[in-house]
Amino acid sequence: MPVARFWRDIPSRYNLYGSRCGSCGKIYFPTRHICPECRRSSIGRMESYRLSGKGKVYSYSVVHEAPPQLAVLKPYVVAIVEMDEGVRVTGQLVDVDAEKIDIGMRVEAVLRKIGDEGPSGVIHYGFKFAPVPD
């Protein structure tokens, strides 16, 4: 991924900035420039909105066939997390053994390395999810 493209996404990758429709109040992640429900009445009224980072596991899958960059992590877990704001976000689930994951389990966003452009390339950081400590 080109450096500039990733750089543009830093607010959403680091701090889960999405959008809130100024017309109906619905929250979106990632950022949307138009609300698909309010359509033209949302134009110019979409606000930047930061998700709390907290949510629960809506569904998950254990990945055994990984792309080369993630081979060292396999098997790893990818989850759809239903955030407390209602929007669903996909991300890797870390710091938990696959057999201990339950649907509905409380998780929160943490920042981890999500890849790099080889040993001399830029490192990409972004959110993953981890169980909420007791």
Binding site: L73, R112, K113, Y125, K128
Partner: peptide, 16 residues
Amino acid sequence: PSPDEDVVTIAIAAAR
């Protein structure tokens, strides 16, 4: 550290 952790992620976890 996990392969997806480094000084930056550790520093961020502590700072947050």
